[in-house]
Design a protein around this nucleic acid. Structure first.
Lengths: 191, 191
DNA sequence: GCTCGGCAACTAACTGGTTAGTCGGCTATC
DNA sequence: GATAGCCGACTAACCAGTTAGTTGCCGAGC
């Protein structure tokens, strides 16, 4: 086997993402990760430090890729919710890792910097759209963002299993429609 | 100390609820549970079988008490959402245990019978209200229930930490208002 | 073009501590 | 004194992290 530290690192990270997503931090086994990556356990410690830091590396990578792949569109929150919904379908790992993180780490203070930053950005984008009149201002920006994220979690097979593709697309329709209602104008302020 | 098997059982169950809520199944330590309950570890095995069955006992008790304490009111879903929201405040254990369960157990099939039953009941109540015209039928009953439950999760300090009591009551207001919008009549069908 | 030395990448085996689960006996109570 | 309730001590397995040593690669020197 060719020696390629960078590639080994990547393999370990991918295997760790699977293991942590499936079993959480406490349930994950370092030996299993190494075996799945086809690497030696000791490499985990040379590359990542320890089990916890390995989880951090996995989680950070997840946050970065999610933020990159699902940019917010304050002008069309229903569509944004739909895309988050879809991502929970295509990346079932993601929500699980997020949940493990909040359960096993979240001393409810421990929001990782990357998440906090991206949330702040998104809330700012929503606030700007509200000032511009493109979104109603009945909810504070942070809470509107929370509403959207909470609803898009229904795309997760974990929390809300849907049976069959037609049930799934109906579910998606429900979610985007719900967000549309949340950001709809009241009658008196309709254009 | 007086010998009272029933009481010891209760203490073990309560201590287990704390431990499992905080650390999950894999992270929970049987010795810690016994110590917290002021009982001997071996009693866990005589009363509950093993660690997993102890978790089941904790979880079942949680489902039973939740269903009993927060009855659904299909005629006033916003208020129902508000009460679920409040319960997530007063019983932070509950949502955590639910999440642990879905992460560590949920082969996405493993919905415990009690949960499935109570969900079916609630969905049926919603469906009846829809037929009676007391709720709009734009969403299938199961999905409407999901929407309400998802939104009420914002009352959890885990998933959506709120700082300060005023932020919390604003959050509650947001949630009940959001549910109200979801079940509001469209203009043309307004009474 | 060859080789040889140094080093980064990698490995197998081990360690120390932890943990779920068990077992034989003790004790309060009736 | 019978028995349900309880306990201390034990075990076998497990697991994160370490260490001493091996292997393949690459560039300097000839």
């Amino acid at each position: 086997m060719a020696r390629d530290a960078e590639d080994t690192r990547r393999r370990l990270l991918a295997a760790a993402a699977d293991e942590f997503a499936q079993r959480g931090i406490a349930g994950a086994r370092v030996d299993r990760i190494a075996a799945a990556a086809g690497a030696n356990k000791a490499l985990i410690y040379t590359y990542f430090g320890n089990k916890d830091q390995l989880f951090d590396a996995v989680f950070d990578a997840l946050v970065v890729s999610t933020v990159a792949e699902v940019p917010i569109d304050p002008g069309d929150l229903p569509e944004y919710a739909g895309r988050l919904f879809d991502r929970n379908q295509t990346h079932p790992q993601a929500l699980r890792l997020l949940l493990w993180h909040s359960l096993e780490r979240g001393g409810m203070v421990a929001l990782p910097e990357a998440v906090a930053l991206s949330n702040a950005d998104k809330a700012a984008a929503i606030a700007a759209a509200q000032r511009a009149g493109r979104l109603p201002d009945r909810y504070p920006p942070e809470e509107l963002l929370l509403l959207v994220v909470a609803l898009s979690m229904l795309g997760s097979a974990e929390l809300a299993p849907a049976d069959g593709p037609e049930a799934l697309s109906r579910r998606r329709q429900t979610v985007t429609d719900a967000v549309a209602r949340l950001v709809a104008r009241d009658r008196e302020e309709q254009r």
